[in-house]
């Protein structure tokens, strides 16, 4: 039977925990809004990029580029986009469960985010590189990851590159999702922004009246455009992963705060009961003592 002092002490410590989780919830909430905003500002850029890619798409048939080359897939590389910090509910576990399903021998991993790197090292997967990205991922960070993947693909270190990340469905729902990055099977439209509607597929068929002139030539421009659109896609994925992380953390911390409040309530009840019984006991003792004297 715990004494009243023990219970009091526990209430105090739970209260402290609740305060911390509450603060973390607030911070995560603010960061989530910021992350969503960051994902949204990329939209005009994505629209323009899609426009250019749509113009380029009809020409792709005659265009050969190493990044477009589809090879039989023997070796696969997977970029695992995880978080740097924990305390975000089942987000990372869900992600790693997907990663664990992949064939260990034929898969090389590229980690973005510390938790992913730790997991891959712990489970002894083949880790090709480890990248970090900031709270608001910059384009340069995305470019570094995407460049590395492209180099790996071009050198034959991997016949296909996928990205495994947490897709932001809503504040309450985030799902691990795998998207193919390389080879570029067809010129895909890049999506931007959280919950962005899928962009219109590039209009094909029918001769276009506005024929574009390329300068210096198609090959150079498209050759530069392809890696760039991959970099941009990677950037959007990082933004999305961050938005997922922060909303997952917010929800996890909200649950933790609620649980702590409940615990405090229960403990307070127990404390009061104990206190009351102690008082009753003392009164009884006094009454008995008096009767014995008198």
């Amino acid at each position: 039977m715990p004494s009243t002092r023990d219970i009091r002490r526990r209430i105090k410590s739970v209260k402290n925990t609740a305060q911390i989780t509450k603060a973390m919830q607030m911070v995560a909430g603010a960061k989530m809004r910021k992350a969503q905003q960051a994902a949204l500002v990329g939209r005009p850029y994505a629209e323009l990029l899609n426009g250019i890619l749509a113009e380029a798409a009809p020409r792709i048939a005659s265009f050969k580029h190493p990044l477009l080359e589809a090879r039989p897939v023997r070796k696969r590389a997977v970029i695992v986009v995880s978080t740097d910090r924990g305390l975000c509910g089942a987000l990372n576990s869900n992600l790693f469960r997907e990663a664990a399903k992949l064939d260990t021998d034929a898969t090389t991993f590229i980690a973005a985010g510390k938790k992913g790197a730790q997991f891959l090292a712990r489970t002894r997967r083949r880790l090709a590189a480890e990248f970090t990205y900031k709270d608001t991922p910059t384009f340069a960070e995305a470019r570094a990851i995407s460049r590395f993947a492209q180099d790996l693909f071009l050198e034959g270190g991997a016949d296909a590159v996928d990205v495994l990340f947490t897709n932001f469905v809503s504040t309450l729902v985030q799902q691990p999702k795998t998207v193919p990055l390389l080879p570029v099977g067809e010129i895909r439209a890049v999506t931007a922004g959280v919950n962005a509607p899928a962009p219109e597929p590039p209009a094909t068929g029918g001769p276009r009246t506005d024929v574009f002139e390329f300068e210096p030539d198609e090959k150079t421009v498209l050759g530069a455009l392809l890696p760039h659109s991959l970099n941009f896609q990677m950037h959007q994925i990082l933004l999305e992963a961050r938005a997922s992380e922060h909303s997952a953390r917010m929800v996890a911390m909200k649950n933790a705060t609620d649980n702590a409040q409940q615990l405090i309530k229960d403990l307070t009840l127990e404390y009061n009961k104990l206190r009351q019984s102690n008082i009753t006991k003392e009164l009884l003792e006094i009454a008995t003592a008096q009767m014995a004297v008198g």
Partner: peptide, 9 residues
């Protein structure tokens, strides 16, 4: 204005 459609780096 009215420049011909062009794509360049």
């Amino acid at each position: 204005p009215q420049h011909m459609p062009l794509m360049t780096q």
